[in-house]
């Protein structure tokens, strides 16, 4: 099968990044939307790892929300973005390890449902421990310093946009290496012929657990960036529809390559902004129709469309 090679993908990624910077420069308000989109792209990259193993998590917003709350609670103590971000992501990864040890036994619908249930329990706790979390009112996050510098609003927004973009490039590159490695290949085997995998002496559970922890880490990065960008965290970040949104974006972007999640996330946020601007009270209808259209007519997602175009280009 002729797929775009590594070099081509890297070039596309860099061109995309440059385009994003240009857009952010031209329309300052879009910088915020794009930062959120890139953050979500990171979380969706984690979803993609699990999708490779044929598993769909309907609860990954749990890790996004967890990391966001870590940032909210720690920001007054350590007001430094470059410390908060890794702390929150590692926290999410640790939580992912604990939960992963237990959910990696489950497959398919049960895997999805276990994740859904745990995320809903976490969501309820955020609301229940009202005196600690402020319930649905949420917690305000004061802008932390970045690399020791207290920035102006514009500088801070640029810094976070830069961090998000940088993280996406690195994470995408690492994910590509991981998926090509034996550990990554084992994921596809879980999807198709799990038992054979174990005959070969590879523990399917360990392979899935590794991907799960990585996905929790990525979702944690996303949550930390979202918290520092919107600067207000609420339990809604962890509601099941937020988890569904991540899966939605994964399919929209296409699960075939690591660029898919970012493509999907940016398209998703832009469609939502457009839909909200044109029909404020029917944006769900528009978003739903777009998703339906993609699944029915381009089931390999936006990446699939680009891939086809590239192939045609090469043949021509």
């Amino acid at each position: 099968m002729s797929r775009p090679g590594g070099k081509q993908e890297a070039l596309l990624a860099l061109a995309g990044a440059a385009a994003l910077v240009a857009i952010a420069f031209g329309a300052p308000w879009l910088k915020f939307v794009l930062t959120i989109a890139l953050a979500k792209g990171l979380a969706v990259l984690g979803i993609l790892l699990l999708l490779r193993a044929g598993q769909v998590s309907f609860g990954h917003a749990l890790y996004v929300a967890f990391a966001a709350y870590v940032v909210a609670f720690l920001a007054p103590l350590v007001p430094e973005a470059l410390v908060l971000l890794p702390l929150a992501a590692l926290g999410a990864a640790l939580l992912g390890l604990v939960i992963g040890l237990f959910v990696s036994r489950y497959r398919e619908i049960f895997f999805g449902m276990m994740n859904l249930a745990l995320s809903m329990v976490f969501y309820s706790l955020l609301e229940k421990f009202y005196h600690f979390t402020r319930g649905t009112d949420g917690i305000r996050v004061q802008p932390p310093r970045v690399a020791g510098m207290a920035l102006t609003r514009d500088g801070y927004e640029w810094a976070l946009f830069g961090i998000a973009l940088g993280l996406c490039l690195v994470a995408g590159w690492l994910a590509r290496i991981y998926l090509a490695s034996p550990m990554g290949q084992a994921l596809s085997a879980i999807k198709t012929r799990e038992t054979r995998l174990e005959f070969m002496g590879i523990s399917a559970r360990a392979a899935l657990l590794f991907a799960y922890v990585a996905s929790a880490f990525l979702a944690g990065c996303a949550g930390a960036i979202i918290a520092m960008t919107t600067r207000h965290v609420t339990p809604l970040l962890g509601y099941w529809t937020a988890s569904g949104e991540l899966v939605f974006i994964a399919v929209l972007g296409g699960a075939g390559a690591v660029l898919g999640p970012f493509l999907g996330a940016i398209a998703f946020e832009l469609v939502r902004v457009y839909a909200a601007a044109t029909l404020a009270d029917s944006w769900q209808l528009i978003l739903g129709s777009v998703l339906l259209g993609v699944i029915l007519f381009a089931s390999r997602g936006l990446w699939g469309v680009i891939e086809a175009l590239l192939r045609r280009g090469r043949r021509a």
Partner: peptide, 11 residues
């Protein structure tokens, strides 16, 4: 597909 349908039907 059913998720998309859910969003559409909400509106």
């Amino acid at each position: 597909v059913t998720f998309a349908l859910f969003m559409i039907l909400e509106d």
